[in-house]
Simulated assay, not measured.
Amino acid sequence: MIHHFGGIIIHPRAEIGSDCVLRHGVTVGERVAGGPVPVIGDGVVFGAYVQVLGSVNVGDRALLGSMSVVLDDVPPGRTAVGIPARVLERRNAAD
């Protein structure tokens, strides 16, 4: 699903799973010309203006906070925020 379409850029070699949500301004691409591109799992939610660049694996059901720049892997079910993005710690085992 693409919310508020506009300015979404997806590299043609990038892999994006099913049931993902992309908001405006999202970029999924390479860091250098001809370099590796991201692999995105199923059910990933992208906040507005998220940039996912390079050899990055984003696990199923991960959440990527608005305006984050994701340069490292994000485990399944986790949340990544910031520039550069960091994976948030879970509050408890039930999270």
Rank of each mutant, 00 (worst) to 15 (best):
D73L: 04
A94S: 13
I2W: 05
L71W: 04
P36R: 14
R61V: 06
I9H: 01
P76L: 03
G35Y: 02
S68C: 14
G65N: 11
G54C: 03
V56C: 04
G41N: 07
D42Y: 01
G41A: 10
P38V: 08
L88S: 09
V26P: 10
V52Y: 04
N92P: 02
M67P: 00
V44K: 08
L88W: 04
I8W: 05
G34Y: 03
I83Q: 14
D73K: 00
G47W: 14
G34S: 02
P38N: 07
Q51H: 05
A80V: 13
G25R: 05
V32G: 07
L64M: 12
H4R: 14
E30F: 03
Q51L: 02
V45C: 10
A93G: 04
I2L: 14
H24F: 05
R61D: 12
L53K: 03
L71E: 11
R90C: 11
P12Q: 06
R91W: 06
G43E: 14
T27I: 06
R78P: 04
A48N: 11
R13V: 05
V21P: 06
V52W: 01
V69I: 15
R86K: 14
R78S: 14
D60I: 12
A85M: 10
A94D: 14
D19S: 12
F5G: 10
G77P: 12
G7M: 06
V44E: 15
